[in-house]
Design a protein around this nucleic acid. Structure first.
Ligand code: FES
Ligand code: FES
Lengths: 153, 153
DNA sequence: ATAATTCGAAACTTCATAAGTTACGAAATA
DNA sequence: TATTTCGTAACTTATGAAGTTTCGAATTAT
């Protein structure tokens, strides 16, 4: 099953966005992510609705942070990209007639709901700025300039 | 993303299998699950390797439990169907050059690993026989004969 | 023996959907 | 007026579970 990488990508983008003191175009971002501008616009549109980024059209336009990274949690970003399905595991039928299958569903739902709740709780505890700090520490310990250029682009 | 219903289906099958005091053919099971015999064989093959079911060919053959439901946990069944990917959420790139993306991956992995560990721990705590008991309780409270026939077939 | 049943397994098609792409209009700046 | 850049719709591709077809092998019934 193809997994959903939107949360991961958007976090990556937000961190790079903070480093830049200028709007980043969808094309730049697409190059960074190894994808294309239309997809970037489509996904960042969700973050814009939440005020996490702002976009400007025309010459000199692009995407910039709409608020400090310290004011966004992973949970916020998760919701901004559409609160995608967490699990690949699922039920065969959500509303089965069969009582046996209902028992199976009840048990699986309970476990899945618990695990999802834990995950989203963790996400809510982590600010995006914490990732930036983690990155800064890695960079420092490797003796790398914090404002590095994009190696993957 | 299309989710993976193998665990759910196999639990359903195991519970029905216990009710029957005879081998169930792949065709019967397929009718029950709303699918087809080849898929049933493919998926049950994993359970057979773990000794959770046994199969016999030829006239009067089919599938039967290989051990009591009290000796199987949801975790056992999960592993028997191939330990499928738990999450639909995933990383954009598992081994990125970019330090920023590495920081993102580290944080996401940590949260996902925690949630997965909790889920599998719960799975390991639940015996398949617990689901049967839950089913029996539902059936009793509805005044339904425990050995009901298949309504979905 | 012969026929019927049933699993075993390979090869293939379908389906769902995230991702990727193309294209063009709207808005902003030069 | 030309250029840049986002906004958005429509379309194609990629991936893997699910579904299907088919035939051989094993087992039992007659
Ligand atoms: S993609 Fe993060 S530095 Fe290039
Ligand atoms: S599928 Fe469970 S009773 Fe028919």
């Amino acid at each position: 099953m193809r997994h959903d990488g939107r949360l991961s990508r958007m976090l990556h983008v937000l961190l790079h966005m903070e480093e830049q003191q200028r709007p980043m175009t969808s094309e730049e971002i697409a190059g960074m992510l190894g994808t294309n501008p239309a997809l970037v616009r489509r996904t960042l549109a969700g973050l814009r609705e939440g005020g996490y980024v702002v976009s400007e059209r025309g010459h000199g336009g692009g995407w910039m942070l709409g608020k400090p990274l310290a004011e966004m949690t992973l949970r916020d970003v998760y919701d901004a990209v559409g609160s995608p399905e967490v699990f690949a595991l699922g039920l065969a039928d959500d509303q089965p007639q069969c009582l046996v299958e209902q028992a199976v569903n009840t048990a699986l739902r309970q476990s899945l709901d618990e695990a999802r709740a834990l995950l989203l709780r963790r996400f809510a505890e982590i600010r995006v700025s914490d990732l930036r700090d983690d990155f800064a520490a890695r960079a420092a310990s490797l003796g790398i300039m914090p404002g590095m250029s994009c190696a993957d682009a």
